[in-house]
Design a protein around this nucleic acid. Structure first.
Length: 853
RNA sequence: GCCCGGGUGGCGGAAUUGGUAGACGCAAGGGACUUAAAAUCCCUCGGGAGUAAUCCUGUACGAGUUCGAUUCUCGUCCCGGGUACCA
């Protein structure tokens, strides 16, 4: 055995072994329980970053741990390969997105292998591969057939200078990121998925996912945003038209004094009288330039414009002026609200500004509201007043009563509304899955016949970042005969949102090479649901909701029988770091800062916020340097030890050295004791000295702690700390050579317990300890309950809640004995001597609190 | 704005179900070994008082519940994530 730990040599040896033997290649096996461990697959941005190292180190611990526990573990890896950065690289550097992506995948695959992650690489997939996206196109066609995919008009960010659609991220302070021109909103015909049809089921199942963090479930519930209320129809005075509103407060209907419509509302134009047309048009234009987040914010100045038309309140015949208002969003409800200024704060502000009438219809208990003196709306509960037959009712009961009355009258009914909107999946970009639709001027939108799939993304294409969608300019792609009538037609040139690929890749892993359908049902039945999904908390809503949605879609298409894809979810925190910038050169990489100055111009580097490591802000650490210097085991250990997984990890590279030192300590522990423990008998628990018993107790307590820290809570940092303590104690253990069999058990336990975290060094040491089989073969250590028990316990003694002493008692001492020992402690006696003992609280095995006064 | 998290020494973090605040590691200081350096080992390490025993104080801030609060409740401040075309 070598005296020194040489990580790079060891890691190369074991990685070569793993490459050759593929020990983690799995198939369906009825003899073992299955365990599907899934980590969110990466976008191939170029190089792995610390977030990946963290995510995949966490996952690998669990995968290796479960394997050691005897599970048949599926642990796959792939690439979320479509997306905007590839196209940006093409525009900026002239590299084709396909080439750029392929190179990145090759690089990152090498990097992941260098980390010693236990993947079944035979299942690797890349979403930009036609063998993958062809199935997505098929699923889309089936959805189209069932009406779950449909087209409608929706707004996009449009840069008039570049003549291109911009993603939200490409809009900086309302301007295009490339040419800095003002961005406009433009209406386009786009494809949608009817996720709203699944809103109720998606919501209901949030109550049936006990393995998910409550915070994620709450976020999803709020995102779906179910609210119950009523839809009410208001006829327009003097016209054969009506405005439908959704309200959660039908109980306030008698207080509705005007109407507010979204500026985009289809009736906005027809309801505008000719003399107000100019003013209204100017207002609509102004609102269109403001984004929705700003529009719905509380601080945003509420503004509106009168259309000149009036509605009639169906319950009291009141004449209600119709306004367009900037805070009403077309995307929510019906895009129109009945305004009740007395009981809705936004309506209140609006009414005060435009001097509109107010009528109190809910009186809170013990108060009398008067519109003349009110300074804000009363949104709380109360008794209904000024509401005809409903006067005197509790407003909560009134909600249903009013809805019922409206229904009888034919002017409305109770209704449920969701905040969630249908999923817009069209993207006016190149690097994505082509949408398999052909437009014929006679037949309309015609699906590409199944046998013609996949519609392959053409490769011979130019990138300028200007002039609209690149695919639309490629005549050879666009022009194609109509599959129905044969006359010349045009292909859809939009591509799919890349969130679609990540909504079903975890199903494809079960049968990644299936050539007859998206998934092999038997394989999905065996492997799914994923027992554990691990990924960044930033995906709490969108990705995780879309993945749940598509699982249900595939179920309803009869392709799988699965309601939910992920049994347990671990959302890891982000890896954050301070950003730094130079006034001259913009964002700076850490290696571009020397002594707080920009390495290029020597200007002082400005420290920015601490935020998620991201390439665009250059606050990233390249894990490669770490691995080259210390090895993969140290890199893994450090990310696992630095913080518990669900917490954000603030990067600081000082702790790395300590982890490397710890691995050296383990190495030396084996090296120094190898001769002593070379040939020993079994532990005989009957004849152990008290020192040997103490060591053995700590060994078994550590096994228990590490097992529970990994299995229950993923608290790897405390698991590792426990092994560190064990190593310290073994080194310091008195007279350990006297019981070499206990020493051997202790040292072997250290190696076995660390194996999921730092596999290379542990395999190597396991071999040095004389084992020929891999650690994988010997299973996870089991603790001996009898070895855990101690003879004595340390009990803390408090007086009035403050620690005043500690006493040691026999482990089986009864309450009275413990109490007596506590009262007899000399320091404790000082504090109770001249006082009356009022109460003594004894917490068995822990503490005694003496209350005096 | 809205929704979801978080805030503990110089730093990362630990603390079972409300029961010794600061485990483990880093950094720092002191010492041993060495011609020297590296490596390793030993000691100190929240703040304050004290020779010491020990005492006071301390978990973002302000209240509350409790024999006892980092933990539970209410309010405030600050930081991070998401906000539907970044992935």
């Amino acid at each position: 055995m070598l005296e020194r730990y040489k990580p790079l040599e060891i890691e190369k040896y074991w990685q070569d072994q793993w490459l050759e033997n593929q020990p983690w290649k799995v198939s369906e096996d009825g003899n073992k329980p299955k365990y599907y461990l899934l980590e969110m697959f990466p976008y191939p941005s170029g190089r792995i970053h610390m977030g990946h190292v963290r995510n995949y180190s966490i996952g690998d611990v669990v995968a290796r741990f479960k394997r050691l526990q005897g599970y048949n573990v599926l642990h796959p890896m792939g690439w979320d390969a479509f997306g905007m950065p590839a196209e940006n690289a093409a525009i900026q550097h002239g590299t084709h997105p396909a080439v750029w992506t392929k190179e990145n995948i090759a690089n990152m695959r090498t990097q992941l292998k260098r980390m010693g992650l236990s993947y079944d690489w035979s299942r690797e997939l890349a979403t930009c591969d036609p063998d993958y996206y062809r199935w997505e196109q098929l699923i889309f066609l089936k959805m189209f057939e069932k009406g779950l995919a449909y087209k409608k008009s929706a707004a996009v960010n449009w840069c008039p200078e570049c003549e291109t659609v911009l993603a939200n991220e490409q809009v900086e302070e309302e301007c295009c990121w490339r040419c800095e021109n003002k961005v406009e909103q433009k209406e386009l015909d786009q494809w949608f998925f009817r996720i709203t049809s699944y809103a109720e089921e998606l919501l209901e199942w949030t109550g049936k996912l006990p393995g998910w963090p409550e915070s994620v479930l709450t976020m999803q519930r709020n995102w779906i945003g179910k609210s119950t209320g009523a839809e009410i129809e208001f006829s327009v005075e003097g016209k054969d038209q009506s405005v439908r509103v959704f309200t959660t407060r039908p109980d306030t209907l008698f207080g509705a004094t005007f109407m507010s419509l979204a500026p985009e509302h289809p009736l906005a134009e027809t309801l505008t009288v000719s003399e107000r047309r100019e003013e209204v048009a100017a207002f609509i234009k102004k609102v269109q330039n403001v984004d929705q987040i700003q529009r719905s914010s509380d601080e945003y100045e509420k503004e509106g414009v009168f259309t000149g038309s009036y509605c009639v309140n169906p319950v009291n015949g009141a004449k209600m002026p119709v306004f367009l208002a900037n805070f009403v969003l077309m995307g929510y409800g019906t895009g129109a609200v009945m305004a009740v200024p007395t009981h809705d704060q936004r309506d209140f502000e609006f009414a005060r500004k435009y001097d509109l009438p107010m009528q109190v219809v809910i009186q809170p208990e013990g108060e009398t509201l008067d519109p003349a003196t009110m300074t804000e709306a009363w949104e709380g509960p109360g008794t209904m007043v000024n509401s005809g037959d409903f006067d005197g009712l509790d407003n909560d009961a009134g909600k249903e009563k009013v809805s019922a009355a409206l229904e009888a009258q034919g002017a409305g009914q109770s209704s449920v509304n969701y905040r969630i909107r249908d999923w817009l999946v069209s993207r006016q970009r190149y690097w994505g899955t082509p949408i398999p639709i052909i437009y014929c001027k006679d037949c309309g939108a015609v699906p590409v016949p199944e046998q013609d799939l996949p519609v392959k993304l053409p490769i011979d294409i130019e990138f300028t970042g200007e002039g609209g969608s690149p695919l639309a300019k490629l005549e050879s792609f666009v022009n194609t005969p109509c599959p129905q009538c044969g006359q010349p037609a045009r292909r859809e040139t939009d591509t799919f949102d890349t969130f679609i690929e990540s909504s079903w890749y975890f199903l494809r892993y079960a049968s990644p090479h299936c050539e007859t359908s998206p998934v092999d049902q038997a394989a999905v039945d065996y492997w799914l649901p994923a027992d554990q999904y691990i990924g960044g908390v930033e995906h709490a809503v969108m990705h995780l909701l879309y993945a749940r949605f598509w699982t249900k879609i595939l179920r309803d298409l009869g392709m799988i029988s699965l309601d939910e894809p992920f049994e347990n979810l671990l959302t890891q925190g982000m890896v954050c770091m301070e950003t730094r910038s130079c006034p001259e050169h913009g964002w700076l990489y850490p290696e571009e800062v020397e002594d707080g100055r920009c390495s290029r111009c020597q200007a002082e580097a400005v420290s920015g916020r601490n935020e998620k490591m991201s390439k665009s802000k250059k606050n990233v650490i390249d894990p490669d340097g770490l691995i080259k210097r210390y090895g993969a085991d140290t890199a893994r250990l450090f990310t696992l030890f630095a913080a518990p997984p669900e917490k954000d990890l603030e990067w600081n590279d000082q702790g790395v050295e300590g982890c490397y030192r710890f691995l050296n300590r383990i190495w030396r522990l084996v090296y120094d004791n190898l001769a002593t423990i070379d040939d020993v008998s079994e532990v005989d628990t009957g004849t152990l000295s008290s020192a040997a018993k103490d060591l053995r107790r700590l060994v078994h307590r550590t096994i228990k702690k590490v097992t529970e820290d990994i299995d229950g809570s993923f608290h790897f940092n405390t698991a590792i700390a426990a092994v560190m303590e064990l190593v310290n104690s073994i080194s310091a253990a008195p007279d350990k050579e006297a019981a070499p069999e206990v020493l051997r058990e202790a040292i072997e336990s250290v190696v076995r317990l660390m194996a999921p975290f730092v596999p290379h060094i542990c395999e190597e040491l396991w071999q040095e300890l004389g084992y020929e089989d891999s650690l994988d073969e010997c299973g996870w250590p089991v603790w001996d309950e009898d070895a855990l028990l101690a003879d004595t316990l340390l009990i803390v003694v408090q007086v009035n809640g403050k620690v005043r002493g500690k006493v040691t008692v026999a482990a089986d001492a009864d309450k009275d004995t413990v109490e007596a020992a506590a009262l007899a402690d000399t320091n404790v006696m000082r504090f109770i001597a001249d006082k009356t003992v009022r109460k003594v609280i004894v917490v068995p095995g822990r503490l005694v609190n003496i209350v005096v006064g």
